[in-house]
Simulated scan of single mutants.
Amino acid sequence: MKNIFIGLMFLTGIHSFAQEAGKVGELLKNEASKNEMETSVSKTRGSRNSNNSGFRNPNNSGSKIKNPNYQWNQNYGYSEVFLRIPEQGYFNIELGDQMISNNSGKFRFFDLPSGRIPISIYDNGYLLYRTTLNVRNNSRMVLDFFTDQGLFLLDSYPVRNQSYGFNNWNDVWNNPYGNQENNWNNSGNYVNVMDHNTFDQFLEMLQKNARFDDSRLAMINQQAHSVMFTSQQITILVKEMSFDKNKLSLAKSMYFKCADKSRYFLVYDAFDFESSKRELMDFIAKS
């Protein structure tokens, strides 16, 4: 009986820490119509349609141009999109003017221009999903797709100097689920970021043991010596302050302990007065 009980507890523990479809991330709306999804499209291995030739201007891909006007250093911006499909199958992903087909379930797109980029997901020639991604310059967008759940935006990380900044490809997708304690900083390197479960424990201790702003600031600053925080976590901590001047003081100091500074605009929501928001904006602009 004891062995059965231990076995059940073990299985329960494994399930509680497993990644689940739809558990994290922002669900992106499927814009494909029912008619499109029921019509097979030729998306077989090695095939490409006329709008995905690999050239930025497909109309010129098949003709020889005399005296071409080369443009060597056009700045389209640089962005990356990483998409994972943790299911068996041979999928085709079209993202802008790029297309990747494989059965590994991992699709990594580089050298993307910033802006709104359409994405389409096919399985065995049938369109499963279509939507538009709003890709920022110098960023890596990370997504998960589940055929019965949809496309989820897990997070967007800053990318500097087109550097990878990680050792294991799987960590890119696993981190948003809280399975890893590492995350990104603005230089593209690993830093020690407080995971979601630890942050919840820290917040509970803060609310229980620090009743006034002074003690809250001291407790947060002490913790910040050994760990980094996300913009969302910092927003929650700033909201714990009772007075706007203390909120502003904390928001300024925590900016240097933020792992995803590109999302620091979330912290503005923690303030009650527009003047405090503007002062924080000015501070960040000069930092």
Rank of each mutant, 00 (worst) to 15 (best):
K257I: 02
N185T: 05
F229R: 04
Y157M: 11
F199L: 05
R160G: 00
I4S: 10
Q201H: 11
A18E: 04
I65R: 01
A21Q: 10
A210H: 10
P118H: 04
T132N: 14
M254G: 05
S156Y: 01
K29N: 07
M219H: 05
L11V: 11
I65K: 10
A259C: 14
K23S: 15
I119P: 01
L154N: 02
K261L: 04
D282E: 13
D200Y: 09
N51D: 07
Q180A: 09
V41P: 00
F166R: 12
S139C: 07
G125V: 09
N192P: 00
V238I: 08
G62V: 02
A224D: 03
S287E: 13
V267H: 06
T198E: 14
V159P: 01
D144R: 10
T132M: 03
P176F: 06
K43G: 02
E20I: 08
N175G: 03
S163A: 06
T44H: 08
F271D: 07
A210E: 12
N137H: 07
L143C: 14
V267E: 11
N138W: 04
L280Y: 04
M1C: 04
Y129L: 06
K261V: 09
S79N: 06
N186Y: 08
A218T: 13
S101G: 07
L95H: 07
G13F: 11
N103W: 00
D148H: 09
F107Q: 09
R116G: 01
P113H: 06
S262N: 12
K239L: 07
E38V: 02
P118G: 05
Y264R: 09
K23W: 03
F82C: 04
P86C: 09
I236L: 12
M9A: 13
A32S: 12
P118M: 06
A218S: 13
F146N: 13
D123N: 12
Y122E: 01
N182H: 10
E80D: 02
K2M: 06
K34D: 11
V267N: 06
N30V: 06
E87M: 02
N3D: 10
N209I: 04
N170K: 14
L128F: 04
V159H: 07
A21R: 04
I4H: 03
L95I: 10
Y129E: 07
Y70D: 03
M37Y: 00
I93E: 00
G25W: 01
N59T: 11
G188M: 02
N138C: 03
D282Y: 09
K257P: 01
R140K: 15
V193S: 05
L8F: 12
G178Y: 03
G115S: 03
V191T: 14
F55R: 04
P58C: 05
L266H: 09
N102D: 13
N209A: 08
N57P: 00
Y255M: 01
Q71L: 13
I236Q: 15
L83Q: 08
Q71H: 13
G96L: 08
